[in-house]
Design a protein around this nucleic acid. Structure first.
Lengths: 150, 150
DNA sequence: TTTGAAAAATGCGAAGC
DNA sequence: GCTTCGCATTTTTCAAA
């Protein structure tokens, strides 16, 4: 699994603007053949460099309450708690972090009741959680998936 | 811009598994015509319900340091700081939150030097920031974009 | 809004450079 | 590893129910 060269990065640069761009279109933009684009995209997909997904607006599909939750865990329990959190549909992101909280998660809920249930029932019953710090999103300013500078 | 019905949600349910699924394939799965799928997808795109994107693995494209940063701002300065943060390529996500921090952002960097520069130079020079709380990601457990329960 | 059918574009596999 | 060339699939367009 080698490094990405300039053409690979250029392909990603175009796809990050619009995941629906065709091989043909990208080929023209980069002045190489369609087959080259296709081969490289398939290689990057196989190597897990990126994947084609859709990004839904949570509000538009009825998930009106978004929260970021910091968790402090008992030493040695972090991994197991992370795996438990993993299994919740509501949880979009979980990571272990250095800093104030051992775990940070992002989760989407239909309404406040569901958030309260998640925190007071589900989190509350997990062994090894020492403290929970809930932040509720009031306004979103940016949510970008374009990491590549052109 | 009406509400989504069961077919719309079913379409999103299939697309969230794989953003490359064709109209034809989804049509067969849902026992409706290809045109129906196409019409509905285009309506949802127009309404901003979702978009086709690619999700890159930050590590695989050389962004090896990921951080979540909580910021406390001077009253009334929050909006303007959020907009400034917005303009940084490194910043993937910014939101205003209730709770311990007024703003929370997620950012990706090539290395620790770039993170340190962002915090100690860029953030440090912004007017109205009272405190900054940096958490560095040690391990990622989940990063899902499938919000719809089937 | 959904369907069906024909034209245009895109994607795919194989062969050669 | 890149390109070209047929063939299959998908997308687009549009008329009609």
């Amino acid at each position: 699994m080698g490094k990405l060269d300039d053409i690979d990065l250029a392909i990603l640069g175009f796809l990050q603007e619009n995941g629906k761009r065709s091989y043909t279109e990208i080929a023209k933009l980069l002045h190489v053949s369609e087959g080259t684009i296709r081969t490289r995209i398939n290689r990057m997909l196989k190597d897990g460099v990126f994947e084609f997904i859709i990004h839904m607006d949570p509000n538009k599909i009825g998930l009106n309450v978004q929260a970021i939750i910091g968790i402090t865990t008992k030493l040695g329990q972090q991994e197991q708690i992370a795996r438990t959190l993993n299994s919740f549909q509501e949880v979009r992101f979980v990571g272990a972090f250095s800093g104030q909280h051992d775990l940070i998660l992002q989760a989407y809920f239909k309404n406040n009741d569901e958030l309260v249930h998640f925190v007071n029932k589900e989190l509350a019953k997990m062994e090894g959680i020492l403290s929970v710090d809930v932040s509720i999103e009031l306004k979103q300013y940016k949510d970008s998936f374009s990491y590549i500078v052109k």
